[in-house]
Design a protein around this nucleic acid. Sequence first.
DNA 1: TCCTCGTATGAAATCGATTCCATCATACCC
DNA 2: GGGTATGATGGAATCGATTTCATACGAGGA
Lengths: 350, 350
Amino acid sequence: MPTIYYVAKHAGVAPATVSRVINDSGYVAGETRERVERAIAALGYAPNRLAQGLRSKQTQTLGLILTDITNPFWTTVARGVEDAASKAGFSVVLCNTDESQAKQDQYARLLLQKQVDGFVLVPACNDAETVTRIRERGVPLVVFDRRVPIPVDTVRGDSEGGAHSLVRHLLAQGHRRIAVLGGAREVSTATDRVAGYRRAMGEAGLTVDPALILYRDFTLAAGDEMASLVLALDPAPTALFAVNNFIAIGALRALRDAGVRVPEDVAMVAFDDLPQAMVVEPFLTVAAQPAYQMGHQATELLLARLAGDKSDKILEIILPAQLVVRRSSSHKVGPSLNPFVKDVELSHQN
Amino acid sequence: MPTIYYVAKHAGVAPATVSRVINDSGYVAGETRERVERAIAALGYAPNRLAQGLRSKQTQTLGLILTDITNPFWTTVARGVEDAASKAGFSVVLCNTDESQAKQDQYARLLLQKQVDGFVLVPACNDAETVTRIRERGVPLVVFDRRVPIPVDTVRGDSEGGAHSLVRHLLAQGHRRIAVLGGAREVSTATDRVAGYRRAMGEAGLTVDPALILYRDFTLAAGDEMASLVLALDPAPTALFAVNNFIAIGALRALRDAGVRVPEDVAMVAFDDLPQAMVVEPFLTVAAQPAYQMGHQATELLLARLAGDKSDKILEIILPAQLVVRRSSSHKVGPSLNPFVKDVELSHQN
DNA sequence: TCCTCGTATGAAATCGATTCCATCATACCC
DNA sequence: GGGTATGATGGAATCGATTTCATACGAGGA
């Protein structure tokens, strides 16, 4: 593995000159540059990025800390991040926290030790500890998708607004008893979506039944459990709002197993769409976030910070969620309860 | 940001001693160790991994080069890789090639410059260039999912066997004209799956109509196009075999748009399942590869190589694909052609 | 008593780049 | 002809760790 010294010797120049050629910095005479370039080609030299990074304090690497790449929303985000980073010559180190703050903190520490130039962080919880640790080190970061209690650059979807649209849509279909299958209480997207729900209900002059608002976490199992719980209520809701895609799938499974039809017996809407490429016939009415674009934009913001606009004030970029109406909510109901639901509710309790 | 020298001074020892404490190597007296550990804690010291890597020639980082993280198969694989790596204290740098060999080669070069300790590589094509480049540098790698024309550690699913199972299943259902919607001809998984198809057909004493075997690439658009093409044949196939999930979805869309019902009018099977968490009611009969396990195992093999069993011979680990029969192929057909297909074929040509 | 060996530690070289500073032409201007 | 930019290059320090080598001490064996 040739080093810069070999190249220098081979070209009959000093290492410093080779460095200038590599980085296209400082003065290098045309003839010298050519000689160095020939030497580089002849030896098959490639600079050692560790050494470069150690000296120059830039690793051209970003850390991406998210909850679970297995969720198609995060997958798409990750792709957006990778594309934006790669275009700028940056690599991305990927870390899954599974919503565990301990893991998140551990990864953040590790990446700091690796001297990454910046972070895109999806905070596992509403705590600012990791964020402050990173900022103390002077490493730029963009908080993604979720809010934290301190001011910091953020890119996120409009959870409140998206939820509001979804619930308004349900209300327009005639639904009055709408249950919220919520995520983790410590996560802003969960609470913001509930806030959007409350606002829509309030605007419609409806009082919110607290029994219809549940918090668990963003998993299939939670969706399953919450769906079963709300269906057992009396009166049962005529529509369900799942605050993310995994909860929605879990809930739909529970409904299927209970013999409850969607949308005939109960309507269903959810936050986060599934990617086009994964579904033949999309079924669920959703508030779709522009996941790829969000990831891309967060990374570009981060890169801009790296490029040096420290002076700017803190940015909070909120991208709108798009209401996509599909079959799962297409069944209009009257003001009276759908009789099907009662039947099902009973059968479910047995 | 404290360095090892600060810590050394603070503890009243030499940097070498601090290094010994950090790495738990060499001789350190108990009392000295405690003093150093207190200094580390007091200063909040964390070693610079670049410097460590530069000197020790180990970065505790793996490169994962795959085609597209957006495909749920690769997502799951990536998660398996990340989990295995993380458990061993390694980080993972993720790269998407989009099946472009140029990108693949570029990423491989970059990661080599970053001195990654090892590679998990999904080759974009049947070319060994990238693989040899990596091996020349003496960096361990595991080729994933696809074969390359030189002997190298490999972890892959049983494409031939999985395809064979799928086609046998179709044959058992009474299908005789079975079309293959293939991937890229340069990719072994595509050709192996066709080989499995041929074997199953041959064992059934059937001759293969070459018009029923198409090659394109692993995309929705290709699936759409190929499905339309084979449906226009006369006689049309009664069953389609999509060699991956994206092709399957594309084909299903084409069928839907053409008014062809699955499985009533035409049966459909595919390679690669969608993750449990993304589908309420799985519909497609598939050969499911243990994606997570494959990624995990490939990484463990790679780590074992790193740990030093260079002596071992080259390993080729082939994991079985599991036949999962679902509705999309459940409709038995007789030896005569399904009349529906003809209708559709005509309407499609208009 | 002397030698050896195991334990403990530090000094200094090293990894492979960048970067600061000094040096030296050459050209230009007055 | 002397002073001064400007261009071009090299030497050496530096980034922050690891690693080699030398040294020193105390215990145990001959």
